[in-house]
Design a protein around this nucleic acid. Structure first.
Lengths: 124, 124
DNA sequence: CCGTATCCAGGGGGATACTG
DNA sequence: CAGTATCCCCCTGGATACGG
């Protein structure tokens, strides 16, 4: 048989965008930072306290990435001691919505997921 | 000043769920597989062809994880040669919606993101 | 056709110490 | 307070080869 009739299974451009955006915020911490900043602007140390278990290094890296993507803005007040505030940009806020939707999904379906895992693990 | 009035900046339980779910599908490939399966059930080799650049190993691992989470079901037809079909479970389909929302967001805002990146990179 | 096994490079991410 | 610098471990993910 020839293969001229092979089905054109392809990704839409949208699939690839999704993948890239998710990769961008896939880190362990990005989402937590975004969710915190959704409600209020916060200082570096406040974020550090708010995100349980994050190291100084990872918070810095996470913030730099978010800033680079235009999701978070950084404003420095050159006082002594210095003060740096982070807040979600408009772009950041617009992403928080869809992300929250995934969160809501997770909240509702976590029992099913964990049940599926338990069942899968039980039979190896 | 004392710090008894320090603000109770905490994550809601939802934030943590989001983070976990995103970690789960954060892999390079999970989303692409889900999006492909959204429209039709597919065989292993069809998925391999459909997901551009994926290795056999990573496709296997991705499918195992999705199966373990109850998002994808695997059905074996013991013929010669063997045939294995994968399809989204109901749970999987219910996740595809929210993910698509993120995709739509990405589709609309990618120009802004890339512009932000270019600007950020231009000034160091 | 559908995997598993093995090897290996690269980066994510933690701990710690140091600067302005 | 808000980072940067360094070290180091482990996991992800690619290439390849082999088995049912």
């Amino acid at each position: 048989m020839n293969d001229t009739d092979e089905p054109p299974i392809r990704h839409t451009a949208e699939c690839l965008r999704v993948s890239q955006v998710l990769s961008r915020i896939a880190g362990k911490w990005s989402v937590l930072v975004i969710m915190l900043l959704r409600q209020q602007s916060l200082r570096f140390s406040e974020l550090k306290r708010g995100v349980d278990g994050i190291s100084q290094r990872m918070l810095t890296l996470t913030l730099r990435n978010l800033e680079r993507d235009g999701l978070v803005s950084r404003s420095v007040t050159p006082s002594i001691p210095p003060r740096v505030d982070y807040e979600l940009t408009e772009l950041g806020h617009s992403l928080a919505g869809p992300i929250q939707a995934v969160g809501t999904w997770a909240f509702h379906h976590l029992p099913e997921i964990e049940a599926a895992q338990a069942q899968y693990d039980a039979q190896e």
